[in-house]
Design a protein around this nucleic acid. Structure first.
Lengths: 252, 252
DNA sequence: TGGCGATTTTGATTTTTGTCAACTAATCTC
DNA sequence: GAGATTAGTTGACAAAAATCAAAATCGCCA
């Protein structure tokens, strides 16, 4: 049912998970939040402070403005994060899946700066941040690992800024689909067939486009026989040409 | 000449500098990179590992792709960071001034992911990252402080994503000018009169606009008597209306 | 299972921004 | 300091995306 799969740490999006265990009985950091290179004792230290939490579809993992206590490692499911401005402006800042770490933005001011909402029933490990900092003092590799995760989020955000600042609608959608494809593949799912968990509006919000523009771009790709779209189900028929959508446009 | 000024730590962009010292003889972390709440001994530990470095206008602090060794705390001057894609796409990801910390993106892969280029003659403190991690293990407040700085960069990036994803050209420029104004003010300079260090093209790159669009937006603001533009010199004549440019537009 | 609200698609039109071009102003170099 | 180069402004036009509108489809829940 759930196939174990080896994951390249270097390109894995958040926590460097080396291997998913097939036994899913208990929520332990060993299974899901296991940073590379910790020994049994070290894992136990982390394990003991973390707590499992379930969020049903549509539910909030945390609200913007809420007091920050914990980071959340996604054990299963799919979530979005949204920033909100006082003027009603809002935007999806990310879609997050198994193995990724949420809440990093809140460290800055001890207040969450975004909503985190489950797009399907999800499960997370709640990691009290104060404890994590404390433990990481005694485990240099854990501290190093945590710094890399934060840095990776910064790099990811710069990539999104590049997308929003310099790509056309079709390029943005191509980039989005390729990113999802890669991330599903890393988790042992098909890179060519997957179901979107979010609406066209949410995709649009993330990509800085209106939902109609997203819909039209999907239709265009389908007409060009690059993908098949059946509502939320996507099949990538020609990943090479999807990649070309990105590189093709000559940018000054 | 150089007026000391009290800075609110909570809104200060990068390092929580409490006070600029008026003596600028030596580059020490005590003066410029002093995190809040460290005692003399603690500051010394950091001080000893940092090194001063000057970059002349147009020079590189680091190149994308270069091996990561150190973070850089800006002591004086003004720099930009640019991400580059293999397809030639590139974008300014930030403008950085005194007290801010550069290089956080490179922790992730031990390679710099962006160019950092001086827009005026600048001086930085080079802080070897391995040393910083080592020292921060023994000084919890330093570690905590460093985590807040990284987190703040993530929050800043989310703000830019919101700007790029949901604002019109004039709103973007208004947001940009208000941001610069606030940051100059925090450093003891006028919030209403300042010189831009970057070209229209660089502003456009950062805001996801073409230089002509930036130029037109400047002219529009000037016509509306919100600002005065004299090439690189900006005077904000009506900051309230500049703020309205942001909040005015009703967003769904 | 049937109906209703939410989501998606598609078309027509408008708005916004980009592109190209010409000109002016500033800055750099020798 | 003169000429060359770079930067900035403005206009006319084209392209991209947003907006408005209508119809089709999906999925939730009673």
């Amino acid at each position: 049912m759930f196939k174990p799969v080896l994951i390249e740490p270097s390109i894995y999006c958040q926590l460097d998970i080396v291997q998913f265990k097939s036994s899913c009985a208990a929520c332990s950091l060993r299974e899901l939040c296991l940073p590379v290179g910790l020994n049994e004792d070290e894992v136990k230290k982390l394990d003991i402070v973390s707590q499992k939490r379930k969020i049903t579809r549509g539910g909030y993992l945390h609200h913007a403005g809420a007091k920050f206590q914990s980071l959340y490692a996604i054990r299963s499911g799919f979530l979005k994060t949204c920033v909100l401005e006082q003027d009603g402006r809002h935007q999806v800042t990310g879609f997050h899946m198994t193995g990724e770490l949420l809440g990093l933005d809140a460290i800055s001011t001890d207040v969450h700066t975004c909503d985190a909402i489950a797009l399907e029933d999800s499960e997370v490990c709640e990691i009290p941040f104060a404890k994590l900092e404390e433990i990481s003092r005694t485990i240099p590799s854990l501290m190093r690992h945590f710094h890399k995760i934060m840095s990776r989020e910064i790099v990811r955000d710069h990539g999104v800024m590049l997308l929003l600042g310099s790509m056309k609608a079709e390029e943005r959608l191509a980039s989005f689909l390729l990113n999802l494809s890669r991330r599903f593949h890393l988790r042992g799912y098909s890179e060519y067939n997957f179901n979107l968990r979010m609406t066209r509006e949410e995709i649009g919000s993330y990509l800085g486009l209106k939902l109609e523009t997203v819909s039209r771009a999907f239709s265009k790709f389908q007409d060009e026989e690059i993908i098949t779209v059946d509502n939320k189900h996507i099949q990538i028929k020609d990943i090479a040409r999807l990649r070309m959508k990105l590189s093709n446009s000559d940018v000054s």
